[in-house]
């Protein structure tokens, strides 16, 4: 009797990794926008909202792009979910930490 094949968890791993990456991208873009006026200008896609419009738009695009690519790569495969999720959590935690203004100010030397 053939052993039961594991149900592939690759798609879930891809989604988690992408979500963590999207959050980190958002924080890094916000940090870059706060630290540089030129970057802030570049990220101002919609003037009334200011750089936040570009920060969030680019972060969403990065999130979706990472998700799409990771999904294509991991779809139908069993991945080491412990490692993938650990990486995703570290990336997410870093993203969350970077949104905290006192920490951001510390990094920018304010």
């Amino acid at each position: 009797m053939k052993p039961e094949e594991p149900i592939p968890n690759g798609a879930a791993g891809a989604a988690m990794l992408a979500a963590g990456s999207g959050c980190l991208a958002l924080s890094l873009l916000a940090l870059a926008g706060d630290g540089s006026k030129a970057v802030a200008r570049l990220l101002t896609f919609y003037r009334p909202t200011g750089p936040l419009s570009g920060v969030t738009t680019v972060a969403i695009l990065i999130w979706l792009a990472v998700w799409f690519i990771a999904y294509r790569v991991c779809k139908g495969k069993a991945v080491a979910i412990a490692i993938v999720s650990a990486v995703s959590f570290v990336v997410l935690a870093l993203g969350l930490l970077l949104t905290f203004p006192p920490f951001e100010d510390l990094l920018l030397g304010r």
Binding site: L26, A59, P101
Partner: peptide, 17 residues
């Protein structure tokens, strides 16, 4: 506001996943 405007966006991203 500085915290809210960024961290708020993470919630729907994570909940979509």
């Amino acid at each position: 506001m500085e915290w809210k405007e960024h961290i708020g966006w993470m919630a729907p991203m994570l909940m979509t996943m």
